[in-house]
Computed example of a mutant assay.
Amino acid sequence: MDANRDTFETRLKNNAHEIEALLDLLLSPSSLSDEIARPETLRDAMHYAVLNGGKRLRPFLVVESAALLGGDAEAALRVGAALECVHCYSLVHDDLPAMDDDDLRRGKPTVHIKFDEATAILAGDSLLTYAFDIIAAPETTLPDTSKASLVLALARAAGLGGMAGGQALDLAAENQAPDEAGIIRLQAMKTGALIRFACEAGAVISASPPEDRRRLRAFGEKIGLAFQLADDILDLTSDIATMGKATGKDAARGKGTLIALRGMEWAEAQLREHVRDAEALLAPYGPRASILTAAAHFIADRKS
């Protein structure tokens, strides 16, 4: 596992560089065809929102799930960049005073602090819209049927029944703590849906059989649960310097978490079980799945 971890960490870092270079290019000052102009302050805020650090885990999962199944690497990178735009839009909006009211993100001022609230709202709106532009654009060299499948899957993962709906449930949880099933549903929507899409996208990009799509979707669901559980543990055990954002906020706001309901020992055991389930889903692919297996362990073991 140590050798695999070294390979995983190298590939994660290299992918982050590639994604950031592509995002920088996509958010250049030059207008695209059919764009009238790119307002400087808005573009600057979008650029700041997506290029202020981060592991780029979600696009990495797109790229590696596509690689596992022989998908086009360049197309996977563009789909990963689109997904990162959606993820970063969600962070910009989650940080707003009307939502989680955070001043720090990845150790830097949040977009509404760096710029202003109106610009932050528009930056989030524009990043969400741009994600679907990136997938649909001719530069993403996939069949139209694959692009339509990706657009539909990403829209479902990001919207009312996915991430945005999960954020609504999260805000409601400040007033009435959900039960265990409600917490799991909230987390599967707010955090898990985009991670599920990241893994499932590889099967769409590679035009793999339905069984591969179902298997990678299930893998994404498992590591999505692991990601949020690890996040909840870090929220209680880490600090601002390590996390790059405020910690302990869920407890301070009285939000229910699985740890609050079941305890830390249960949470750590459940986290290990999610990783075992994720490994089992990848077992049919043998050694070819070593990077995705390492990703599951990384999600569970991360410190920030």
Rank of each mutant, 00 (worst) to 15 (best):
R217Y: 08
A218V: 03
R185Q: 15
A153F: 08
A177G: 07
R156A: 14
A164D: 11
G192I: 00
A172C: 14
G182S: 09
A218M: 06
G192A: 03
S206R: 01
G202E: 04
V151C: 12
R213K: 15
G182H: 06
A168T: 13
K222C: 11
L194W: 03
F219Y: 08
A188D: 15
G162F: 05
Q187F: 02
A181S: 14
L154R: 00
D212P: 06
A193C: 10
L216W: 02
L194R: 00
I183T: 00
G202H: 02
E211N: 14
A181V: 11
E211W: 12
C199L: 09
S206L: 03
A155D: 10
R185S: 14
K222T: 10
A158D: 06
I183W: 02
A168D: 13
L186K: 06
I184A: 13
G166F: 00
G162Y: 07
R156W: 09
D212H: 13
E174R: 11
E221T: 11
P178T: 04
L171A: 06
A203I: 04
A148H: 12
A203C: 09
L216K: 03
S149T: 11
Q167A: 11
S206W: 00
L186M: 15
G192E: 00
A153C: 13
L160H: 15
L152F: 14
I184W: 10
A193P: 00
L171M: 15
Q167N: 12
A153S: 15
L171H: 10
A153Y: 06
E200C: 09
S206P: 03
K222G: 09
A173G: 14
A193S: 11
P210K: 07
K147M: 10
A158K: 04
A226M: 05
M163K: 02
I205M: 04
I184P: 04
E211A: 15
E180H: 10
A148C: 15
A172D: 12
C199E: 04
A158F: 05
G220L: 03
L225Q: 10
A181R: 14
L171D: 07
A168H: 14
A181Q: 12
G220W: 00
F219K: 01
L171K: 07
